[in-house]
Simulated scan of single mutants.
Amino acid sequence: MKRILTIALMLVTLTVCMSAKEPSQATAVFTVMPKMSCQNCENKIKSNLRFEKGVKSIETSLTGQTVTVKYNPKKTNVEAIQKGFAKIGYAATEVTECDDSQNTPAEKK
């Protein structure tokens, strides 16, 4: 009986460890051209991009001119999402890192 419980516990632990290593959700931030200028631009992106395979959620920012996409990396990737943008007339570029040095006031440096 102890062996059966030990084996079952090991299988459960192994399953949990394996699932923790595989990310179920990834996030990518994009800038788009032409720039979003109104709520209709945001709505166009949100309503069309949500049909791309693997896309979980879409957040847009007019002030920051960014589109944040949460997606399942098992089903899609950044290149496929960029092709989804192209279908609706936008060229999307992934923002890979944020350079805060230009936005920092001189007294904080």
Rank of each mutant, 00 (worst) to 15 (best):
Q65L: 04
T76M: 01
A92H: 02
K21D: 03
Q65R: 05
S47Q: 15
M33E: 14
A86D: 14
S47A: 15
S57N: 13
N40I: 10
L5M: 08
I45V: 11
Y71W: 03
V67K: 06
D100I: 10
S37G: 15
I81H: 00
V95G: 01
Q39D: 13
F85T: 02
T63D: 15
S61V: 08
C41W: 02
I4W: 05
A26T: 13
T31E: 08
S57P: 08
F51G: 12
Q25T: 10
S101I: 07
K75G: 04
V12T: 12
K44R: 14
K75L: 14
T31H: 06
S37K: 15
K53Q: 11
E52M: 09
E52Q: 14
M36N: 04
T27P: 01
A86S: 13
V78E: 04
I58P: 03
K108P: 01
N40E: 13
T31K: 10
L9W: 04
S24D: 06
C17L: 15
C38P: 06
E42W: 00
V12E: 06
K109M: 07
I81F: 00
N48M: 06
N77V: 09
F30R: 05
L14M: 15
E52Y: 04
K70Y: 05
K2V: 12
M1S: 14
T60M: 02
P105L: 10
E22F: 05
E79P: 01
I4V: 12
A80V: 07
N103V: 07
L11P: 02
C41E: 11
E94T: 04
L62V: 08
N103L: 12
M33R: 12
E22H: 08
K56W: 00
E107D: 09
N40Y: 14
V32H: 00
N43D: 15
M1R: 09
K87F: 03
T60G: 05
V29R: 10
G84S: 13
E42I: 00
I81G: 00
R50M: 10
V12P: 04
K56Y: 04
T27M: 12
C38R: 01
V78L: 01
S19C: 05
K56F: 02
A80T: 09
K74P: 02
K83P: 00
K83A: 02
K44C: 09
I45P: 02
A91H: 11
L5D: 02
G64I: 02
M10S: 12
A92T: 08
K108W: 13
R50S: 08
K109P: 01
T63R: 09
T66P: 03
S19Y: 09
